[in-house]
Nucleic acid binder design. Sequence first.
RNA 1: GCCGGGGUGGCGGAAUGGUAGACGCAGCGGUCUCAAAAACCGCCGGGGGCAACCCCGUGGGGGUUCGACUCCCCCCUCCGGCACCA
Length: 805
Amino acid sequence: MTNSPPPHLDRLDLPALDEKWQRIWAERQTYRTDMDGKRPFYCLMMFPYPSAQKLHIGNAYAFTGVDVYGRYRRQRGDDVFEPLGFDAFGIHSENYAIKVGEHPAVLTARNVEYFREKQLKRLGLGVDWSHEVDTTDPRYYRWTQWVFLQLFKAGLAEHRQGPVNWCPSCLTVLADEQVVGGRCERCGSVVETRFLKQWFIKTTHYAQEMLDALETLDWSERTKLAQRNWIGRSEGALIDFRLDGCARPSVTVFTTRPDTLYGATFLVIGADNPHLDEFVGAGHRESVAAWRRGLPPTDAEPDFAVGIDLGSTAVHPLTGADLPVWAAPYVLGSYGTGAIMAVPGHDERDWQFARAHRLPIVEVITGGDVEREPWTGEGSMVNSGALDGTPSQDGRRRVVEMLEARHAGRFHVQFRLRDWIISRQRYWGPPLPIIHCPVHGPVGVPEADLPVLLPEVKDFRPLGTGVSPLAQAADWVNVPCPICGEPSRRETDVNDNFLDSGWYFMRYPSTDFDDRALDHDRTWRWLPVDMYIGGHEHAVLHLMYSRFLMRALCDLGWVPVPEPYRRFRAHGLLTFGGRGKMSKSKGNVINPDDYMARFGADTLRLYLMFLGPYLEGGEWNDDGMKGQSRFLERVWRCVQLCDSDESGDGERERRRHRTIAAVERSIEELHYNTGISALHELQRGIDGDVAAGRGRRIDARTLVQLLAPFAPHITEELWERLGEAGSVHLAPWPQHDPDLAAEPRVTIAVQVNGKLRATFDCDAGTPAEELSRLALAQPRVQEFLAGRGVRKIIPVVDRVVNLVV
RNA sequence: GCCGGGGUGGCGGAAUGGUAGACGCAGCGGUCUCAAAAACCGCCGGGGGCAACCCCGUGGGGGUUCGACUCCCCCCUCCGGCACCA
């Protein structure tokens, strides 16, 4: 090769090519999807929330990986639908707006503009922008409200009192999924329990179905596992205990170990159980009330020393024994029935509590020494009346049968998943479309009156009173009941923005229609999503909610199938500066804009896809870009210097077909890094041909086409320069023929006792006996055998011959 | 504590149970240049040897196998998630 490009080659200016082709693609609507296409393929990426920060490199990584896949499918002839939008409502944006003293509507509109125009389009995504959604646009949230009304009408949305997570800093209720380790997912404040009337979506109604359907889904295994754990199915029994000495006549507890019932020595009511007062014995009221006031706020660390005897007693349903009733914070008031039977001999926490408060510990399952430590394993039942000697596994069923006979208990399946609280006492969200009538209670806003527009208010900051700032808009709040016309009040809470994002993918195909949420034909043609790729952090939030919504809307007849995503893959995490996710606080955020301005979008895309297996993520390294930058320079030169129309050459055809196969496999399995390696090798090969004056046009075309999903701009330019008509992104993908990729000659490794001692070449497919003969004939092999007899020969065709002496 | 995923050159990483380290970065040597940069060519796990070559090597220890980065068991370690769920 010469040291500088021949004079007739233009200098490669990647940022200029980005600008040129992005403009032309927009003009020619290259990525506009034929919504009536014969081979629909719905390729989905998680839409971003345009909070104050710009998109960072992690977003670019996520989007590029999906785009490569979508582009590949498009080149293979599918009608690929690759839409994008903005999840612009929510606390993220609102809090930032409060911080900078700007209205969230102004702020998010500006951010959306920047994201779309300066970053997402700049990356060269093959997105059909004509189907963009913005969750803050009334033309979108009108239908979010419609979705809520469908759930309301179906009885899947309920206004009820309940214990809820309250963030004292964000001044709003949070969903369970937004509480991490007892703290607010967003601000880290310790979450408090409050009893408020809230809107619940009955996700638990589909708990079993969603659990069962996981088995049938083609999803990343780790994502399915996270959902399985979150739904948290457990089997056991509900057991009723009669109570004496308090207001309540009885209490029901849940246990997964009914076989240990004979070992129950006391009951514990959750300290945050809303009905705690009803369990308190006469004469204990004041001491219990004082104890309760002195409790520390919800904390992740359980303290078994904390607890109080409530002074009432429970009657054991089988033995008739009197058991003391206690209250303690180690029992959750909101899981199961909010109360437990304590079996200290066979439960870690009950044992600790019993020790701390000198309560009796009884062994009812053999296998350990319950005075020293609790035995939670299986064994034979003892101290259990007629059931003594029964294996504990069988005992579970036997005890349930006995309870059922006495009407004191029954088999029960308990889920850890709880209903989704979707009301938020904040400003920046879609108002829940409900009117509270003194006569009719909560009434849905008639669908014809949608959208319920978010009203202007003087101050959009949260009030902290448990009421949304929307309550300040008196004219807006006071309306007649849609049924009877009585003076009524609008619901002033807005919905959780996970409701906005829970159905956005259903809306994309139907954005052409303003008079319906989901067009029947479009929805039946395009749903479910064929390929969804996104971050694993949404395993139990967005991915659970959207599965619920799809299932509910399917049962109501609005969508064709209950599961929203045919395939889901969780991509890996991009890290920088050691371990951990990129975040502003760690100071390890990379801004993609600078790199695109310097090296062009193709170089960035290529490097991101090369730095590690896409499903596993990898470490960003500033110097890594150089390798791909050099590669694109070499591609630019060698492709334009190929001028031979030769086609029959066996070895170079093999190389070409081998590369097609390698790139196809790498994209289909989302191991983009190995596909790019194969392209490097092909390019080096072509470079050698060009130096010898025989670079083939067919190789140049193939290289350009295979590289196109990763580097869409330079390949489009080269395609044009090669004199090809139309866009490379719409040209038919090169066919690969396995027969033409097969090597006629292979190298056989010869091992003696498993160690490599020689190699020789032979025709592919040489039979085993012939391989053995050839291996023994190798002079080096004879040296190593040194006259020792060969005990065994293991020939493997086209691979290896192992000689055992 | 429980669950999941990892541990391979200086670094990122390759490898249907069959020649470990493809591809890229960094480094070293060379070509070109007054010089430097860029580009191009070559070398690039460790140890030994003048050399042909030899020995060791995929977190540690066992095992299965003609043959193990790959399969099985135990341990160490890193990352991520969940975490009082009765």
